[in-house]
């Protein structure tokens, strides 16, 4: 018997046991994480009245399941798709404006040397030190004074220059060669043309990462739109769904089926662009 060979195979067994345990651990963890999604998915096939009476049960009873809630979601009289459309429009506008504005600001802060640049960057970081929840009250008053309450502009304007987004663009652009600017200048392009026509295409991956992250934020945003919007016809999906949390009529049918359907757009985007999600999200944590 060769002692060292024996030792080697023992080690191999050890490693494969560890591999099984480690993977099993994440399978279990993954199941725990998915479980709430599964319950709401199964619940969306049960009558809402039953949920109110018995709660979200662990049992799955096929006899009691139907697609009635989804039939009601797509053909009943309710405001769900008004909210859905409002959320879509608000998300698209917010993302487009935020990305363009933040790109320009980060571009100015990264590509040029000018007096006060460091101070400005410090101010960008400083805005992150005050939680939005503290500013929401004076901002709400300000929106009333500016007559922007109950308008889309009132929701978007105060949040257009997002510090985290500026920070991300800056991190990305610090890695780009500034020589490109000079070669653009030699070719006779002015500063703004260089910014838009030469540098913007190069920064495409940064745009992709931020587009995804900020559309997720805008789609799910609730607190600020809740304060700004007053008419039910202007509500976004999160606010609208929230109003359904009363046990009257078909509210719960709509709430559960509607919640499942509201997750869908973000899920699709996530699965398609998973890589960008993670890039954009973790940028601040590494060099922060």
């Amino acid at each position: 018997m060769n002692n060292s060979l024996n030792f080697g195979s023992q080690n191999q067994i050890k490693t494969s046991i560890a591999t099984i345990l480690a993977n099993l651990f994440f399978v279990v963890l993954g199941f725990i994480v998915i479980f709430p999604f599964l319950t709401i998915f199964f619940a969306s096939f049960r009558p809402g009245q039953e949920l109110i009476r018995y709660g979200l049960s662990l049992k799955i009873d096929p006899a009691n399941m139907s697609i009635n809630n989804y039939v009601f979601l797509f053909s009943g009289t309710h405001s769900y798709f008004t909210w859905f459309k409002n959320s879509m429009v608000l998300t698209l506008l917010t993302v487009t404006l935020t990305l363009i504005v933040c790109y320009f600001v980060a571009y100015g802060l990264t590509m040029y040397d000018f007096k006060g640049r460091n101070l400005l960057f410090f101010l960008v970081i400083a805005t992150m030190m005050v939680p939005f929840e503290i500013l929401m009250l004076p901002l709400y008053k300000q929106m009333i004074d500016l007559r922007l309450i109950n308008t889309t502009a009132g929701v978007i304007l105060p949040r257009m220059t997002a510090a985290a987004t500026i920070f991300f663009y800056r991190q990305y652009m610090m890695g780009l060669p500034k020589a490109l600017l000079d070669s653009g200048r030699i070719d006779g392009a002015n500063e703004y043309r260089i910014c838009v026509q030469i540098m913007m295409p190069i920064a495409k991956p940064a745009f992709a990462a931020m587009a995804i992250l900020s559309s997720m934020g805008a789609w799910n945003d609730m607190l600020w739109p809740l304060l700004v919007f007053r008419d039910a016809s202007k509500f976004t999906l999160p606010i609208g769904l929230n109003t359904l949390m009363t046990p009257y009529g078909n509210n719960y049918d709509l709430l559960i089926a509607g919640s499942c359907f509201a997750i869908l757009p973000i899920f699709i985007i996530f699965i398609a662009f998973q890589r960008y999600f993670i890039d954009g999200m973790t940028a601040g944590a590494v060099k922060g």
């Binding site: 994480v33 998915i34 319950t39 949920l51 789609w219 609730m222 999160p238 769904l241 997750i263 699965i271």
Partner: peptide, 20 residues
């Protein structure tokens, strides 16, 4: 991907699920 999924939900959807 799976562990990140809950972060995609809005607080309303998460709240509805856990309230029930």
């Amino acid at each position: 991907g799976i562990l990140y999924l809950p972060a995609l939900t809005s607080v309303v959807v998460a709240g509805t699920i856990f309230r029930l």
